[in-house]
Simulated assay, not measured.
Amino acid sequence: MSRNRSSAGRGPGTKASGAMGSGQVRIIGGQWRSRKLPIKDLEGLRPTTDRVRETLFNWIAADLPHARVLDCFGGSGALALEALSRYASFAKVFELQREAANQLKANLQTLKCDCAEVVNGDTLALLAAGAAEGFDIVFIDPPFRKGLADATLIALKDHGWLNEDALVYLETESELVSMPLPQGFTELKHKTAGQVCYRLLQFTPGEQA
């Protein structure tokens, strides 16, 4: 993750927060439970904490098996790896920083996982190119205070990335707890933890937020 425009930096930029020691991330459930994988020591890299990930994956547990998953701001890949560990059928990950993208590719090879694709590039530009096939579950955990949350939701909707009734996980700074949602998105759940607000949305085309 990085702090550039639509980079895959997460949260307020605390390095490796929630990881098992410096430079590692731990998968907390599924077939790779307790596996620890290396992550690059890059500015702004902050995997979603174990506590938040546990809540998120409890929320979506019934929907994960066989789901197509998109992680818009991959960074360490913690969310995509957790989804694949819990039997998502496929994961696509966008990551701006080449080093982080290459490390995630290496970690997927370590896990002998061939049902994921890591794309090194700018998230909003990649979304604007459109999707050949929609996704069932989408993770959005962008750099904070860069206006990326709303822009990403709109790009996902406008360019065909979301299947009907897709679930969208959105992690933002806590002051955006009351942010208005674009048309088509409905909030199902939300919580706050320190500086972070995280919520689960559902996308239904044609419905008002």
Results as ranks from 00 to 15, higher is better:
Lys15Val: 14
Gly18Leu: 07
Met20Leu: 13
Met20Ala: 15
Gly23Ser: 09
Gly23Pro: 03
Gly23Met: 10
Val25Arg: 01
Ile27Glu: 00
Ile27Phe: 10
Gly29Asn: 06
Trp32Glu: 08
Arg33Tyr: 09
Arg33Pro: 06
Ser34Cys: 12
Arg35Ser: 10
Arg35Met: 11
Lys36Met: 12
Pro38Lys: 01
Asp41Pro: 05
Gly44Arg: 01
Thr48Arg: 02
Thr48Asn: 03
Asp50Gly: 11
Asp50Lys: 08
Val52Phe: 06
Arg53Thr: 11
Arg53Asn: 10
Arg53Gln: 11
Leu56Phe: 10
Leu56Glu: 11
Phe57Gly: 08
Phe57Leu: 06
Asn58Asp: 14
Ile60Gly: 12
Pro65Leu: 09
Pro65Ile: 09
His66Met: 15
Arg68Leu: 00
Arg68Trp: 00
Val69Asp: 05
Leu70Phe: 08
Leu70Cys: 09
Cys72Lys: 09
Phe73Pro: 01
Phe73Ile: 02
Phe73Val: 01
Gly74Pro: 10
Gly77Leu: 05
Ala78Asp: 07
Leu79Gln: 06
Ala80Glu: 02
Leu81Ile: 06
Ala83Pro: 08
Leu84Ile: 01
Ser85Cys: 00
Ser85Lys: 04
Tyr87Arg: 13
Ser89His: 08
Ser89Thr: 07
Ala91Trp: 02
Val93Arg: 08
Phe94Trp: 06
Glu95Pro: 07
Leu96Val: 00
Leu96Thr: 00
Glu99Ile: 13
Ala100Val: 10
Asn102Leu: 15
Asn102Tyr: 14
Gln103Gly: 08
Gln103Lys: 14
Leu104Asn: 08
Lys105Met: 13
Lys105Tyr: 06
Lys105Phe: 04
Ala106Leu: 14
Asn107Met: 01
Leu108Thr: 04
Thr110Ser: 11
Thr110His: 11
Leu111Phe: 01
Leu111Ser: 09
Leu111Met: 11
Lys112His: 13
Cys113Gly: 02
Cys113Thr: 13
Cys115Ile: 12
Ala116Pro: 07
Ala116Ile: 02
Val119Pro: 07
Gly121Ala: 07
Asp122Val: 02
Leu124Met: 04
